[in-house]
């Protein structure tokens, strides 16, 4: 049951060398923390898991009315609710994962100061809850598709890759903010602001094709544009235009953010217990 007697050496900067092995050794803690977050999320709520359905569903209805009916945005030949929902899915996943990830460290102060484990486990497990919500929301999409008799294409198979990208975006930004949050608590107030603003500047309620061609590349500087575009392309298929240069730009940004966020987190990590 125990590993063969392993020698641990503790010295300044040493954590680096054992880092990846430690993450593997502590994988069970990762499961348990994710399991705790999921359990806690749905305990003591009146409608429990239904929250994961109600929220995106209502948002979809409102966006359909505002952007589809009132603003009369182009629907590209698909039912507007499906168009909206294909964008809402990755966005809500990102928004919730980003928020959970950002606040995860300060919500677990006690753990940080009393037990050792690779700290990245906390933000990583926090994101899992959002993923569960995301999976539940997917059922609404299937419901909508049945309702409108809208059949998906084989492009749907790309979805897992796109989910990974959304995951990377949330983690990249989330790790950075989580680490900053430990030192400067006012980052806590930045997160809801980014999430709220992001909802409007990302193509959630409308298709990215309404953005004039010459600005399209610039628009893709928002990394979620590529992800949402990709989702729409995979789900709605058919007519939706897919803007490859923009997607690649988004992808590049996401990777850069993830690497930078992770490095920053690693750099700050060793002082977490001292300054939190």
């Amino acid at each position: 049951m125990m590993e063969t007697i392993a020698e641990i050496v503790i010295e300044p900067g040493r954590i680096e060398k054992q880092y990846w092995r430690d993450i593997w050794n502590y994988r069970e803690l990762f499961y348990f923390l994710a399991w705790r977050d999921i359990l806690v999320r749905y305990k003591q709520t009146a409608v429990g898991i239904a929250w994961a359905i109600i929220r995106p569903f209502l948002t979809m209805v409102i966006f359909t009315i505002i952007f589809g009916k009132l603003a009369k945005m182009p629907s590209e030949g698909v039912p507007y609710p499906i168009l909206v929902f294909a964008g809402l899915l990755p966005w809500q996943f990102f928004a919730s994962a980003f928020s959970e990830c950002s606040n995860s460290l300060i919500l677990n102060t006690k753990l940080l100061t009393k037990v050792y484990f690779p700290r990245v486990i906390i933000p990583a497990s926090a994101v899992i809850v959002s993923f569960v919500d995301f999976l539940i929301s997917c059922f609404i999409l299937f419901g909508l598709m049945l309702w409108y008799d809208f059949w998906p294409t084989t492009r749907m198979l790309v979805l897992p890759v796109l989910i990974l990208i959304a995951f990377a975006t949330a983690m990249g930004a989330g790790l950075w903010v989580a680490a900053m949050n430990v030192k400067y608590r006012d980052f806590r107030y930045v997160v809801p602001f980014i999430v709220q603003l992001g909802l409007y500047i990302s193509p959630v309620g409308f298709s990215a094709s309404v953005v004039p061609g010459k600005f399209r590349f610039l628009y893709s500087l928002n990394p979620m544009v590529g992800v949402i575009d990709g989702f729409r392309w995979a789900i709605v298929g058919k007519t939706t235009s897919f803007y490859l240069p923009g997607f690649l730009l988004s992808l590049g940004l996401v990777l850069a953010m993830l690497i930078y966020g992770f490095r920053f987190f690693r750099k700050m990590e060793r002082t977490f217990a001292d300054i939190i």
């Binding site: 590993e3 007697i5 641990i8 010295e11 300044p12 006690k110 037990v115 060793r270």
Partner: peptide, 25 residues
């Protein structure tokens, strides 16, 4: 291993369990 030393080193042979508080988490 909750916090890093600024200097020096420790070698530890074996699995370490620490109880700095009961009911952590």
């Amino acid at each position: 291993r909750i916090t890093e030393p600024t200097e020096g080193r420790v070698r530890i042979r074996g699995r370490v369990g620490s109880l700095l508080e009961v009911g952590t988490g």
